[in-house]
């Protein structure tokens, strides 16, 4: 495990994390399945008409899938990766642990989990948003936080209570 790494990741990574805030797990998996059904590779326009979603809606999902390493986009062509093939043949539970590996490596995610570990107590939403604002700007901080909670919950590394607005760490089941 590398150390907290917030200075290691170039600023682009932060924006990338922001990009997965615009897509849900189901959408990303659905897109991967669609590409798989089209034979593992297809051009974006075909996929767009195939799944009946225009590029405005498909774009963020595509970007998120690309960022997670599940799809490769080149010259308007979408291609599956080894990781996404592995993902598709996995069970619901195994899918989670694959995605966990990816999310856990993201600098922003790492920074927040590190913050919680060091603090040794649940973190308040405000604290985290303030910390995020320092690196991504207050404009994006809320959205990055939301994405962080969403993906953190999905991969079972984060527990968040919207009543008390407290975020804490958890160990994944199994």
């Amino acid at each position: 495990m590398s150390n907290s790494g917030d200075d290691v990741g170039p600023p682009k990574r932060v924006t990338d994390f922001h990009s997965i805030s615009k897509a849900s797990v189901g959408q990303i998996l659905g897109l991967v399945e669609a590409v798989d059904e089209a034979g593992g590779t297809a051009d974006v326009a075909t996929i767009s008409s195939e799944v009946d979603m225009d590029i405005d809606r498909l774009g963020p999902i595509l970007a998120a899938a690309e960022f997670l390493g599940l799809l490769e986009v080149e010259d308007g062509d979408v291609r599956m990766t080894d990781l996404s093939r592995k993902l598709l043949s996995a069970s619901v539970r195994e899918r989670k642990s694959i995605v966990r590996g990816i999310i856990d490596d993201l600098p922003v995610f790492r920074r927040v989990t590190e913050m919680a570990r060091v603090a040794g107590r649940p973190l308040d939403r405000r604290e985290i948003v303030d910390a995020l604002a320092a690196s991504v700007g207050s404009h994006q901080a809320e959205e990055v936080f939301k994405a962080l909670v969403y993906w953190g919950r999905y991969v079972e590394l984060v527990r968040y209570d919207s009543e008390s607005e407290l975020l804490s760490l958890r160990t994944p089941s199994k």
Binding site: S24, G26, Q27, I28, L29, G30, L31, E33, A34, V51, D52, M53, R57, I61, S91, V92
Partner: peptide, 14 residues
């Protein structure tokens, strides 16, 4: 949405 729906169909089958 179509993508989420397709993903959920597969999971239902699983």
């Amino acid at each position: 949405d179509p993508l989420t729906a397709q993903n959920l169909r597969d999971e239902i089958l699983q």
